[in-house]
């Protein structure tokens, strides 16, 4: 692809130069419907989101807590598919330059076909992909397909990752690495483990890429605290819950309000 510097890198470089932390909301795409997600993403961008994670629903979301499990099920019942999500990406791309990262479980991507997916994702204007259940050892095909199509591949690091894992994961990641703050599933926590800053610091020593931190972050106060040591603050379940409670008509507006509260939390 005749693109210059990739969108994710461009975005994170700019924020880094300004001394700011990226705010990354996660959307469970297709809950309640794909049009609502589309509008909510635009509202979030207006409210100060820097990068968007688009959750691809899967029937068996093993790494997710109850909020995203239920949301994924609603999204599937509403007929959400990876094809439909890529169409939404293309529509968003016509309206915004915000980096878009697809986040999901491997099987729907495997069925789409890794090469076909990477090609279609790139042409729709998606910037990266993260499969929760695809560690580097299993990701050769996906990495190759993404590389040849200019799509960033983002991998997870966990509290259980030792130095050799951190290095191995860093080697095959581009864009950023995603540090999972807790041993557990997605979902709001009242507090994060106290050793997260130290673990993120260790990741920084071994990895040149920006480091995102997610899982368990739900409030502006938590986001502010995490922004002290992370390059990206990722918020998922709390936003998904807020949108669900708001209902279809109000979910985009509520997503915007939620993101703007987080933005103030991070910058404040």
């Amino acid at each position: 692809m005749a693109r210059g510097k990739k969108r994710i890198k461009r975005c994170l470089d700019k924020l880094s130069a300004e001394g700011r932390t990226a705010l990354v909301p996660f959307f469970s795409v297709g809950d309640p419907g794909i049009d609502e997600t589309h509008d909510a993403v635009l509202a979030a961008v207006d409210a100060g989101a820097d990068i968007i994670e688009l959750g691809v629903p899967f029937s068996d979301p093993m790494a997710d807590g109850p909020v995203i499990q239920a949301s994924s099920q609603r999204a599937l019942e509403a007929g959400t598919s990876l094809h439909g999500i890529l169409e939404m990406v293309a529509s968003l791309r016509a309206k915004t330059d915000v980096p878009l990262v697809l986040f999901g479980y491997y099987n729907p991507f495997f069925h789409y076909g890794e090469e076909a997916f990477a090609r279609d994702a790139a042409s729709a204007g998606a910037d990266g992909v993260l499969c929760v259940d695809l560690p580097p050892e299993e990701a050769r095909g996906m990495v190759a397909a993404c590389r040849s199509n200019g799509v960033d591949r983002i991998f997870l690091l966990a509290p259980t990752s030792d130095d050799s894992r951190i290095k191995a994961v860093s080697r095959c990641s581009t864009g950023f690495v995603y540090f999972v703050s807790v041993t557990g599933v997605t979902g709001a926590r009242s507090s994060l483990p106290t050793d997260v800053p130290a673990k993120v610091a260790r990741v920084r020593e071994l990895c040149d890429l920006p480091v995102g931190v997610g899982f368990g972050i739900s409030t502006p106060e938590q986001a502010h605290a995490v922004a002290d040591y992370a390059d990206l603050v990722i918020v998922g379940s709390a936003l998904v819950k807020t949108m669900h409670e708001a209902g279809a008509a109000r979910c985009a507006a509520e997503a915007g309000r939620f993101v703007s509260d987080l933005r103030r939390g991070i910058d404040g």
């Binding site: 929760v132 560690p135 997870l156 966990a158 509290p159 994961v169």
Partner: peptide, 12 residues
């Protein structure tokens, strides 16, 4: 076969 799990489980 293989080991298709989230990163947290790989060390275990």
């Amino acid at each position: 076969g293989g080991r298709y799990v989230s990163e947290t489980l790989v060390p275990a």
